[in-house]
């Protein structure tokens, strides 16, 4: 197989602040194939959104220090000039953001905002671009598309605005789509519609999709592979089934255990993860999850490599020192995967 669509190696992003350097992303490696949905899962501060924004060059600035490598189709994104990068943004890589209410400019008509992007990258007349916009809006399921293009964002519901954002993202047929919590701000029935839209899009366009989310249910619904991030680092990655049925990192167990589900009754207490994520200004030495982990031992003071640790699945990587067999018993709480309550001294 040739090189994947996107190959990120050892990406690190630091922001200088008055209180010190924030290590938002700390050595992230991952890859995305064409037509593949890779979910990047984590909580606020895990670095999942910063990773996505860095690919687009949106984190560049006087206070940001970016290192490592990110190649799209073999082209290095991180060292591109701003001019080269602008030609990639919106064209080869497009992004859909979390809050559709605030992500469209309130003072321009929706159609003009789509046309603006098309004409930035393609030599089309206004009429041609407008016709393309109508096509895109119909494609993402906006009824009466030609007419709605003349509306302003505030005249749309949240779900419709997110469709507009997706139409805009698709306007130049990107190779890679980064969707940053695309359904978090939406109602559940609308969320289901948007996920359906993304699923179709993947099969029709063969674009690679990075889905940044905190919601494991959404991940289970749409992703092919999953990358779990914690405190700036990837702690585990693998296929959907590997991650849900044979999770290796205690943080993943905690995430899986603490979600409430519609399909099962858990009258017992939810096995919550104790404590809070560490500060990115002064993360703990060694494994970042160690202070919250009930299974931590001496060796956790050293940073574990992200490497394959399960014998039969070489693509399943994690950062945890525990023995695989031991993990398989430790992660069971009341017969289900979860993180046991910590033993307090």
């Amino acid at each position: 197989m040739s090189e994947p669509l996107l190959q990120i190696e050892d990406l690190a992003v630091r922001f200088r602040t008055d209180e010190g350097a924030v290590r938002a992303v700390d050595g992230v490696s991952l890859s995305v194939e064409r037509g593949e949905v890779v979910a990047v899962v984590g909580e606020s501060g895990s670095g999942k959104s910063v990773t996505g924004m860095t690919l687009m060059g949106l984190t560049r600035g006087p206070n940001a220090e970016i290192s490592g490598s990110a190649r799209l189709d073999g082209r290095e994104l991180l060292t591109m000039s701003n001019r080269e990068l602008r030609a990639v943004r919106g064209n080869d890589i497009a992004m859909v953001f979390q809050d559709p209410m605030s992500s469209l400019n309130p003072v321009y008509r929706v159609g003009d905002q789509i046309v603006e992007q098309i004409r930035t990258h393609q030599q089309l007349s206004r009429q041609q671009a407008m016709a393309r916009a109508v096509e895109l809006m119909e494609r993402v399921g906006v009824p009466r598309a030609a007419e709605r293009l003349r509306s302003y964002p505030h005249e749309f519901s949240g779900g419709m605005r997110q469709r507009v954002m997706i139409a805009m993202a698709l306007s130049c047929s990107p190779k890679l789509l980064i969707a940053d919590e695309p359904t978090t701000a939406l109602d559940v029935t609308i969320q289901a519609q948007i996920l359906e839209e993304l699923r179709q899009l993947r099969s029709e366009t063969n674009a690679g999709i990075i889905l940044v989310t905190h919601d494991l249910a959404v991940v289970a619904d749409i992703a092919d592979r999953v990358v779990v991030m914690y405190s700036g680092r990837v702690v585990e990655q693998g296929t959907l089934d590997e991650l849900f049925y044979d999770p290796q990192h205690p943080y993943t167990w905690g995430l899986l255990g603490s979600i409430t589900r519609v399909d099962s009754d858990r009258s017992a207490r939810l096995p919550a993860i104790d404590g809070m994520p560490p500060s990115l200004l002064a993360p703990p030495p060694g494994c970042h999850f160690q202070p919250r982990c009930p299974h931590a031992f001496e060796r956790c003071g050293e940073v574990p490599e992200l490497s394959p640790r399960t014998p039969d699945s070489p693509g399943h990587l994690d950062r945890c020192w525990l023995e695989v067999e031991r993990k398989r018993t430790l992660r069971l709480v009341d017969g289900q995967i979860g993180l046991a309550a910590p033993v307090r001294a």
């Binding site: 687009m56 602008r86 943004r89 497009a94 992500s103 469209l104 400019n105 603006e116 930035t120």
Partner: peptide, 12 residues
């Protein structure tokens, strides 16, 4: 503002 980030993401 989010819409300014969107504008940058469009490649303007």
């Amino acid at each position: 503002e989010d819409y300014v980030r969107t504008a940058r993401a469009k490649g303007l």
